[in-house]
């Protein structure tokens, strides 16, 4: 299991190469499914200059760690990778990724969705959209909170 909260970009291919398969000297052969999700900065209006992502150092790692632990237990995951970026991000930049490894496909998909739902409203990140006219904090959506109820 590994969690990174970082400013730097990440290489999805590199993150997924060998993910869930153990180490060369200690290979794991009981993983039948790997699912990954990558989130990007989206610009619906065409006016977005950049997004500023603030977080709460310390609590962020702690909160994500707790969410990951719960997912690992609930879906018996073989591995989890979470990367979430902060700082200045441009439209089209990657914001974050989650990857899950499990014996079966359903567990890997469900765990990835669970992680995403919880990261959205329980990991202490805040997004601010900055454009030529000014800036605005992104408001949390009711449906993001509702999404937690299905778990």
């Amino acid at each position: 299991m590994s969690v990174s909260v970082q400013q730097a970009a990440f290489d999805l291919g590199q993150e997924l190469a060998g993910f869930g398969q153990g180490q060369d000297d200690n290979p794991r052969r009981n993983i039948g499914a790997v699912v990954s999700f990558t989130g990007f900065v989206r610009d619906d209006s065409g006016a977005l200059d950049h997004m500023l992502i603030e977080h709460y150092p310390g609590m962020t790692e702690r909160a994500i760690g707790q969410i990951v632990d719960e997912a690992v237990q609930r879906w018996s995951l073989g591995d989890v990778r979470v990367i979430h970026r902060y700082g200045v991000l441009k439209p089209g930049d990657q914001i974050m990724m989650v990857a899950t490894a499990a014996r079966h496909r359903v567990a890997a998909f469900e765990a990835a969705e669970f992680l995403m739902d919880y990261l959205k409203s329980r990991a202490p990140f805040w997004k601010k959209e900055v454009n030529a006219d000014g800036s605005e904090w992104v408001a949390a959506k009711d449906e993001d909170e509702d999404a937690l109820r299905r778990w």
Binding site: G39, K120, F125, A139, E145
Partner: peptide, 10 residues
């Protein structure tokens, strides 16, 4: 103690 608006990660 930390105060903040509802979180908007992901």
């Amino acid at each position: 103690v930390a105060f903040f608006p509802p979180m908007t990660g992901g």
